[in-house]
Amino acid sequence: MKTAFINSPLGITKIEGDENGVAVISVLSEGELSIEIPTELLDAVTQLQEYFEGKRTEFTFKLNPKGTDFQQKVWQELLNIPFGKTMSYLDLSKKLGDVKAIRAVASANGKNPLWIVVPCHRVIGTDGSLTGYAGGLWRKKWLLEHENPSKQQSLF
């Protein structure tokens, strides 16, 4: 597994993957930046930088996240939430075919290993509130405002 560390407005972004695709993207509060980017991660690094610069709304590099079948199903559905839009946990559960699975869906959402690219930050509470986010609610708020600046989130 190859690793790269790049700077972002939200902290150091850690990218891990190999020739089969990117398996993990996470954010760290501190860390050392990579001097050289492994070839296998160049597309991911470039596309994430373009995203933060406001020049990219979708990602096209190969993904290879590790998770259970159910987690994979949830993460796949997250990819269908359009840039600049949000969806509630309840609506996500309905799309997956089981409104009673809301807690399991929320748990799978929280275990998403591909920060930003699989847009778990676009899932909010039914009442429109920002709810738990592994990277911290301030990052979730920043990402939602970055993706839809005309709709500033007044959810705190």
Score class of each variant (00 low, 15 high):
residue 15 I to T: 04
residue 134 A to P: 14
residue 78 L to H: 01
residue 28 L to W: 02
residue 1 M to D: 14
residue 148 N to M: 12
residue 39 T to G: 04
residue 58 E to W: 08
residue 73 K to Q: 14
residue 22 V to S: 03
residue 148 N to T: 11
residue 111 K to I: 03
residue 93 S to E: 01
residue 135 G to W: 06
residue 48 L to R: 00
residue 84 G to C: 06
residue 100 K to V: 07
residue 65 P to D: 03
residue 73 K to L: 15
residue 25 I to D: 02
residue 56 R to H: 10
residue 96 L to Q: 14
residue 29 S to L: 13
residue 87 M to E: 04
residue 94 K to W: 13
residue 136 G to T: 13
residue 98 D to Y: 02
residue 79 L to A: 05
residue 38 P to C: 15
residue 8 S to H: 08
residue 139 R to N: 08
residue 57 T to M: 06
residue 154 S to H: 10
residue 76 Q to T: 07
residue 104 A to D: 10
residue 117 V to H: 07
residue 26 S to P: 07
residue 81 I to R: 02
residue 119 P to S: 01
residue 71 Q to S: 12
residue 116 I to H: 11
residue 94 K to M: 05
residue 154 S to V: 06
residue 106 A to L: 04
residue 26 S to C: 10
residue 13 T to Q: 04
residue 21 G to Y: 01
residue 11 G to H: 07
residue 7 N to M: 03
residue 137 L to F: 15
residue 25 I to F: 02
residue 86 T to W: 10
residue 9 P to T: 08
residue 83 F to Y: 14
residue 35 I to G: 07
residue 149 P to V: 01
residue 97 G to A: 11
residue 51 Y to I: 03
residue 42 L to Q: 14
residue 73 K to A: 09
residue 2 K to T: 07
residue 14 K to Q: 10
residue 88 S to F: 15
residue 2 K to D: 12
residue 137 L to M: 08
residue 145 E to N: 11
residue 103 R to E: 15
residue 96 L to W: 02
residue 128 G to R: 09
residue 47 Q to D: 04
residue 5 F to D: 00
residue 39 T to I: 15
residue 52 F to E: 00
residue 114 L to N: 09
residue 50 E to L: 12
